[in-house]
């Protein structure tokens, strides 16, 4: 163990550096926490808005076109532009980032939820009606459970892309791990910082994706059984 004061000839600028992680664990963990929080909030809010909209599109065929068109435009608009729209009004806080990410994630959840809802077999719907289910009863007990695979696909897609997009939040100073990535670039091209941010970002996306997939398996045991059979 060398003394911390020992002269180091050339620390170099490696892509991987355990030293960097040891010295900056606080910063890294804070960035990771902010990233996870921003992603979580955005996806939850997006789901809370998108799933009712998908149900509305499912119930009222006339709304399907407009809902998909508007969210499609929001999805096509670059996230940087979404942040730029919101920032002058909400300022440079986390609210700007969350709103931008929510607007972006809507389409993925709506489209997949709607796909899940529309593939509920007509016989099942007829049977539910015959058993006396009303509109809401059918939705809660029949349609939504059967649409769960679609909803979960939408949530997974939205989560993975939101994790990647949260980094764009550096524009307003709240990019989670994006702060590390761009911070490293601006801090004299500190490779270890850039790569730490990148790797953690991809890992976070992977972990959240697997977590939602796992929850999905627990919620839809019939789907797993069907695959196994």
């Amino acid at each position: 163990m060398s003394s911390p004061l020992a002269y180091v000839a050339d620390p170099g600028n490696p892509w991987f550096s355990a030293q960097y992680l040891r010295d900056n664990s606080g910063t890294v963990l804070n960035a990771l926490r902010e990233h996870a929080e921003l992603t979580g909030q955005s996806v939850l809010i997006a789901a809370a808005v998108a799933i009712p909209l998908a149900v509305a599109a499912y119930w009222f065929r006339r709304l399907t076109g407009p809902i998909l068109a508007v969210t499609g435009v929001l999805y096509t608009v670059p996230s940087l532009a979404l942040f730029a729209f919101v920032a002058p009004y909400l300022g440079t806080g986390t609210r700007t980032v969350v709103l931008g990410l929510v607007l972006y994630a809507l389409l993925l959840i709506i489209r997949n939820t709607l796909a899940g809802l529309t593939q509920v077999p007509a016989e099942v719907r007829d049977a539910a009606e015959g058993m006396g289910y009303g509109r809401f009863g059918r939705l809660l007990r029949i349609d939504l459970p059967l649409a769960l695979p679609g909803i979960l696909t939408g949530l997974r897609l939205a989560t993975v892309s939101t994790v990647a997009l949260t980094t764009v939040g550096v524009l307003v100073g709240h990019g989670g791990l994006g702060q590390l990535i761009l911070g490293g670039f601006r801090n004299n091209f500190y490779k270890a910082e850039i790569l730490t941010g990148t790797v953690l970002c991809v890992l976070l996306a992977l972990v959240l994706d697997l977590a939602i997939a796992g929850v999905g398996r627990l919620l839809t045991p019939w789907a797993a059984r069907r695959v196994a059979a």
Partner: peptide
């Protein structure tokens, strides 16, 4: 296509110049 979804664009933009 799944992996590419998870990689932030900013990461490649900052890594490739180095």
């Amino acid at each position: 296509s799944n992996i590419s979804l998870a990689i932030p664009v900013i990461a490649l933009l900052t890594i490739l110049p180095l």
